[in-house]
Simulated assay, not measured.
Amino acid sequence: MVPFFVLFAAVTLAPLGYAAWMSLFREESSGLGFGGTERVFAGIGNFTEALTDPAFLASFGHIAVYCVLYIPVMIGGALALALLVDSALARAKRFFQIAYFMPHAVPGLIASLIWLYLYTPGLSPVTEALQALGAEWNFFGTDEALFSIVNVSAWQWIGYNMIIFYAGLQAIPRETLEAATVDGAGGIRTALKIKVPMIRSTVVLTLLFTCVGAIQLFDAPKLIQLRATELGEEWSPTMYIFSQAFQGHDYGLAAAASLLLALFAGLLSFVVTKLGNRWKAAA
């Protein structure tokens, strides 16, 4: 196990420690900006500044609304596809598993670029098809941009989580399903009353990973923001951190915001796990 802990310390603990050290300092200029900058000790000043910055707090609100839309679509869609593939009536199961998983094999940045093209009027066959049907939809509008981001994320992750759910469904004893069939349960009732309750642990684990991944959202909104400028440069927490570090060159504030985001992710994981355990216990 030594190689694992060495790698873990090098790529996880060391960067966390360095970020914690950076968060305690800030760059200050002297001589009306002509005397260069110097690093001064700020204590918890960067943390206070982040927690009182309306843009940073608003970014968590944006992600909360995103989760309300994204999580039901992604979890529900992945579970529905897994149940369909696991159905006794399904054919070519291996083909559909690979087909549904393919979008996840595309790197997130590339997927966002693909959808950015598909959202752009004059270039996209999607917008042309909508116009031919007499429908109008501005994918980069103030209200519509959020749905565009949700679509990109759902397209990329539904297939991945479908594979996880399908693996959980395959672990259900076939005798249990045969007994349900003998008792007269149809396919839908078997899926809702037998299969879904028996993979609650898998659903909770997937929900946990989805929540933690959602608060780290970066690729899709960053690229969509290139056209949907109303989103702003600091729409999500990770975009706020990126903006502070590489546009504002305030690395202390960015490090403090990063640690606050990590703390929030830990608390969110704890809450989701507790709620998930209660749901499993209620079975």
Rank of each mutant, 00 (worst) to 15 (best):
I188D: 02
L208I: 14
G186T: 10
M1L: 14
L263Q: 04
V212W: 02
S59G: 03
G45A: 12
T176P: 01
F140M: 08
A111P: 11
A14C: 07
T37E: 10
G184F: 09
I164F: 05
M102Y: 13
V65A: 08
D86R: 01
S243V: 10
I63A: 08
L261M: 08
A154C: 07
A255M: 07
R26K: 13
P72E: 06
A256G: 09
E230S: 14
I194D: 03
K195S: 02
A282V: 09
V85I: 15
F25A: 02
G76H: 04
G186K: 03
A265M: 13
E175S: 14
I44S: 13
L253W: 12
K222M: 14
S148L: 05
G186I: 13
I224D: 02
W115T: 04
L253V: 07
F47H: 13
C211S: 13
T181Q: 10
A283D: 10
Q156F: 11
W115I: 08
L118E: 02
S30G: 11
W235G: 00
A282H: 04
P173N: 11
L32M: 08
I110N: 07
F246A: 10
S236P: 00
G45L: 10
M239Y: 06
I71K: 05
A58P: 06
S59C: 09
G61M: 12
F139Q: 06
P125Y: 06
Y166H: 00
A256R: 11
G266C: 07
E38Q: 15
V204Y: 08
T238G: 01
T127H: 01
L192D: 02
T181G: 15
G184R: 12
N151A: 13
R278P: 00
I75L: 14
E128I: 12
G266Q: 08
L51C: 13
W155G: 01
K280I: 14
T52M: 09
M22V: 09
L133M: 07
G33H: 05
K222G: 06
R227N: 13
A64G: 06
E38S: 14
Q131S: 14
